[in-house]
């Protein structure tokens, strides 16, 4: 198995210019590996919606490539998103941190922990490019290839469950993240959004 940090360290080395959208426990780790305008910490979030948010981004920005780092607990809340991913081919690359537990709520096991075959579910949903890695060595060797070529891509990483983590704090407030990302993407800055968010 990999540690969560090892999994993300490999990803940071090969992500290139792709957007990286992190969720839940990964939000705590990713800023120490990358904190660029093409990084988006989806926090505060609606748990389980990271893949959907990333798919929307990928459809709107088809040339960019969007990596979504999500967890098994989140995916279980929205398994249907795998079917949607398969239905709308886009440059989206899902990295599943499969650690068998709800890391930031005290480490309670997710339903089916250690038994659910997430790669099999992704394949059965119709996603053609599905990978699963259990070791750092295997993930390191294949990561660059996984992130090349057409999406959707689904990568399941077997990650050691770690307890004792608190809900992470994103590196900056959401309205700043949104402004920064949309500016990077060349989307017209939304001054009204900023004003409303700042006035709270």
């Amino acid at each position: 198995m990999l540690t969560h940090r090892e999994a993300l360290t490999v990803l940071a080395a090969v992500r290139g210019e792709k957007l990286v959208l992190t969720t839940m426990g990964s939000v705590a780790l990713w800023p120490s590996l990358s904190d660029a305008p093409n990084d988006f910490a989806y926090m505060p979030s609606s748990m389980g919606q990271g893949i959907a948010l990333g798919l929307g981004l990928a459809l709107a920005q088809p040339e960019r490539g969007v990596i979504v780092v999500t967890g098994d607990g989140s995916l279980l809340m929205n398994l249907g998103s795998l079917v949607t991913l398969a239905s709308y081919p886009a440059a989206i690359y899902v990295i599943l941190i499969d650690n068998g537990l709800y890391e930031i709520t005290g480490g309670q096991p997710v339903p089916g922990a250690g038994r659910t075959d997430f790669a099999g579910l992704a394949k059965a949903a119709g996603i053609e490019r599905v990978y699963a890695f259990d070791t750092l060595q295997a993930w390191s060797a294949a990561a660059a290839e996984c992130l090349q070529g057409p999406g959707p891509v689904f990568v399941r990483l077997a990650v050691v469950g770690e307890r004792g983590h608190k809900t992470p704090t994103p590196p900056r407030p959401m309205h700043e993240q949104i402004q920064r990302l949309r500016t990077y993407l060349g989307v017209i800055a939304d001054d009204a959004l900023s004003t409303r968010a700042d006035s709270k």
Binding site: S46, Q49, A52, L55, G56, L59, A60, N78, G80, L181
Partner: peptide, 26 residues
């Protein structure tokens, strides 16, 4: 117009939010 079929309504809202972040008008 592009029609996107979601599997659940929460997913539809998040997907649309991602489209908006990327500059679309969903």
């Amino acid at each position: 117009l592009k029609l996107i079929r979601a599997t659940r309504e929460g997913e539809a809202i998040a997907l649309a939010a991602g489209l908006w972040l990327g500059g679309a008008k969903p």
